[in-house]
Design a binder for these strands. Sequence first.
DNA 1: TTGTAGGCGTTATCAC
DNA 2: GTGATAACGCCTACAA
Lengths: 306, 306
Amino acid sequence: MVSEGLRTRITKAVAELGYVPDPSARALASRRSNVIGVLIPSVTNNVFTDVLSGLYDTVAGTPYNVQLGNTRYIASVEEDLIRIFLSQRPAGLIVAGIDQSPASRALLEQADCPIVQIMDVSNDPVDMLVGFSHRDAARAASEHLFAQGYRAPAFIGARMDPRSERRLAGFSDAIKAADPNGKLRKLTTQEPSSVHLGGELFDRLLTLEPDTDAIFCNNDDLALGAQFAAQRRGLQIGKDIGICGFNDLEVMSAAYPSITSVRTFRREMGELAARRILARTNDEDAGDPIVDLKWLLCARDSTDRS
Amino acid sequence: MVSEGLRTRITKAVAELGYVPDPSARALASRRSNVIGVLIPSVTNNVFTDVLSGLYDTVAGTPYNVQLGNTRYIASVEEDLIRIFLSQRPAGLIVAGIDQSPASRALLEQADCPIVQIMDVSNDPVDMLVGFSHRDAARAASEHLFAQGYRAPAFIGARMDPRSERRLAGFSDAIKAADPNGKLRKLTTQEPSSVHLGGELFDRLLTLEPDTDAIFCNNDDLALGAQFAAQRRGLQIGKDIGICGFNDLEVMSAAYPSITSVRTFRREMGELAARRILARTNDEDAGDPIVDLKWLLCARDSTDRS
DNA sequence: TTGTAGGCGTTATCAC
DNA sequence: GTGATAACGCCTACAA
């Protein structure tokens, strides 16, 4: 709100002096920092890095900075990080999941910045939410196994966080729908997920439940490992054993044989979450507070019996 | 430096008022923020996320915060991000690679905070450096191919950044060492790396150079894709075609057949880089400014001809 | 050992 | 439309 003349005088002075605004002074005076805090449980899990990628891309070019907190799946760490972020008066907060501890939840409720929960759905978000139903997605994948003619599918899961438990619930839904007295074949662990672990769980499961003819995996790493283990045993993928993953990482369609998975829109979650924070910050309309991004079943050779 | 009595009075007041220090006020007054800036070219590349993991783990519990900049392999973005970070008067800066643009390099040289370059080696770092020689590592891997009896190895590479070019140079070194007139079989692209692309490059390479009997891949994603493509053609991995990756991601040893790769110490790079920043900040001895973490050749079934 | 004044570089408010 | 002047919350230095 200055005249043309002053504006040029100012820009000239800026250039001459090499003036660069000081973010901390700005934050102190305006009582608002340009930091968008992001809390995810793991920086190495591809699922979250895809989200991050979308997030960084949409924040790039704005005056905002992303600050990443790595909770390592530990509730107390999450709580500490929320406290740290909040002390910075962030422009917004993005947190993974809807299962915050009561203390964390309380902190978020009181925060006076826009908050987006991602990666899951709930009808009771702290503020805004962008995600999808893990239970529904898992149920659809499990029903696909029955539809393909498998009769004794099993579930293997690692790092059983709340979202994984919901996937197991979806699997269980499908089992019960197929046969109310159907057996729930499953093998889960709290160990961190890996391709190796997928192979191990597969081997152990086949000992526990020898009649298993298909497996639904918690995530794609496990599915890939399970497929390698099955191949090692000389099993025909698809025919002898059906395999289905979750998330549809890029490797699933490239694998030989290609592996069935449930695609989730991770990059889009990051983009939308960031966009909503920015919209709210600029007093624009952020749209519906709850966005369900759904999922997409990608049927491939690993669940093809023909 | 206060008496016991005052200390308790203060802590009591802190508890009563729920006092939390304001980082921006602190940064403004002390002319130093608690931010450690990190610049990496990709947040989705597993290679960098492993570094991040080590980094976050060692910074967790300190008063410092990691702020991540995603350069997307674009020099001008890197320069902008350096400028932004520097305006925050960071506690330290960690940047991937040694190939900064002259402008970026100049900014870093002038910065008055500790700086660590990672992921590569150089005898002329800006400040400190933790990395390894891509050229030597690639040469060792390529020599392994000859040692295993392969006679016509080829190189495939995607996203040919400076480090990838150095790997190609190492491959070339081995070719020349084996036969000064040896043919340099290679196929490279600037496209982002992926498992799919590994398969594509493999197929195209075999058309271009039909006598190829082994391939050395830029990275593990390509190697995995190449292996899938080879399997799709009915080739016997190891016997008909040797395959070697780079970085030794977890999937390499779990794959069937297991895939030879060169292990790099990414997590350790993150840890050491962070530790050095913290040491320097606390006026402790940070040790030798240059750390070479070397590499480890992991020979597996994919390069076993027997 | 304890208290206090000044200043860090903005923003916001208020006269002009 | 423009310029001056308090905060903002902490750190540093110095005085008590």
